[in-house]
Amino acid sequence: MRQHKHLSLLGLWVENCLGRVLAQLGLMAALEIIVFGARLYLLPERPMEETLKGVPSLFMAGWIALFHLLTHCGDERRAVGCTLRRLRVSEGAALAWKGLFGAACFLLLWAVQTAVCLGMGIWYAAAVGPAYRSAQTVLLAFYRVPFLHSLLPLAETAGYLRNLLFAAAMGLETGLCSWRMRRGSRALFGRAMAVAAAFLFSQGMGGLTGSLWLGLGAAALAGLDALLALTYGEEGME
């Protein structure tokens, strides 16, 4: 069956990476559950934030690993650029599709992490004694613990917006990093941005204004990076 030439690009990234992305998310979730379970049974009757220790670090590691995986889908190789630059669509369009796929993967990471943390909350509420348990244990944990609140900001709309903008920025940066590596660059800006975003994403919100500024800042940086790359970086660094 004939596909649309643009959709075939999206299909290219999906077929290249999706299996490994899912495997990596599964591994991250499994490690987090093991760490959380071990703390829950070895150090019982502690507040949720203490039991959760180690999980935000694993999430950050998962974030950086996902970024690395997406920038190393095979399309970062210089010779592959010879094919990508001979297609019936522009390289800008290829970058946009890769960015879209990357953003979807980061949204998936957010969703998986939120689901895992919700599961952990329910598990915690069932395992601890009455001193730490109430009808609203899980809800209060997501309100009180900065890491959990950043995943599920409850009524704070700016928090969701920040997370969406972070995912979009990371998606675009994965495409840009591969684009730069195809031209012989090490794409250090994108990598630095991924590490900074991993840290900031797992932190507390900092209020409505702070969240919005963070999200808008990340998206603006990625957008500017893309503009500079597409304007000045057409030729390869051979």
Binding site: N16, R77, A79, V80, C82, T83
Partner: peptide, 11 residues
Amino acid sequence: TCEHSFFPHLT
């Protein structure tokens, strides 16, 4: 090219 311009993960 001997550097291979195909997509290594795509069948």
